[in-house]
């Protein structure tokens, strides 16, 4: 089923937590999907449907229990954690539901966090982070502690951080859950712009402001750990 231009390919991927124990949970059942390069798709489903697990596998955060996952051309299923991390930091940008910024760090320091273990010096970090913040219109907040800025600004900090390594894939987990409708529209507009720039975007959400967006190429329904084709 894999296409040569598919950025994300999952083939019969399952994920079982606590395997062999009393509290064993099957979060994903043989999920297969493909996402073309440069497209924007939405994983839609209720809480607990398996969207976040699917996103974690696509994002190389956790390996699948079985099946084949090929992300940006690399089969990941048997890769050890070290190589998953290397692949993740060069190919995936994350935007989390809770933003997951470190509130005591400045906005700029939060944005450039992924660059520290890459040995990027402070001047270069400031330059790259500054450019991204300026592009998102929050460069005036660069030296503010992240804990002191608004929700909308936090969202843009999270976007800037996801883009700092210029990854080809952007994953967003319930990105509008804590935003009002205006900010949610702004977020989707930013995603649409990134898509036009060639990024592949996967958004896990059940927010109608996201699922109704005309910029989406496709909506994938997830229910009880399966792709719902009904």
């Amino acid at each position: 089923m894999a296409d040569s231009v598919d950025m994300i390919v999952l083939d019969s991927v399952s994920k079982i937590y606590n395997r062999g124990r009393l509290n064993e949970v099957t979060a994903l059942h043989e999920v297969s999907l493909a996402v073309a390069s440069g497209s924007m798709v939405c994983l839609r489903g209720a809480s607990g449907s398996g969207k976040s697990t699917l996103l974690s596998i696509i994002g190389c955060v956790i390996p699948p229990s079985s099946g084949r996952a090929i992300i940006a051309g690399k089969p990941l299923s048997r890769l050890p954690d070290r190589f998953l991390t290397i692949h993740r930091r060069s190919h995936i940008g994350f935007i989390f539901q809770q933003f997951n910024v470190l509130p005591e760090l400045t906005v700029l320091d939060n944005v450039t966090l992924p660059l520290l273990p890459l040995g990027v010096g402070p001047a270069e970090r400031r330059r790259r982070g500054g450019e991204l913040l300026a592009g998102l219109g929050i460069d005036h907040r660069a030296s503010f502690p992240a804990g002191q800025i608004s929700g909308g600004e936090l969202q843009r900090v999270a976007i800037a951080r996801a883009l700092i390594n210029d990854p080809p894939i952007i994953l967003a987990d319930e990105p509008t859950a804590h935003l009002d409708s205006k900010l949610s529209r702004e977020f989707m507009a930013t995603m649409a712009e990134l898509k036009r720039g060639g990024k592949t975007i996967v958004i896990a959400s059940h927010d109608s402001l996201v699922t109704d967006s005309p910029d989406l190429d496709r909506i994938i329904n997830v229910k009880d750990g399966r792709i719902d084709v009904s």
Binding site: G59, V61, D81, R82, T85, I86, R88, R89, S90, F94, N100, L102, L113, P114, L116, P117, L118, R161, N165
Partner: peptide, 16 residues
């Protein structure tokens, strides 16, 4: 724990 998890997701290796 959350800080460690964030750093990991952002591409920090366990060694880092």
């Amino acid at each position: 724990k959350r800080e460690i998890a964030i750093l990991k997701v952002l591409g920090w290796q366990t060694g880092d």
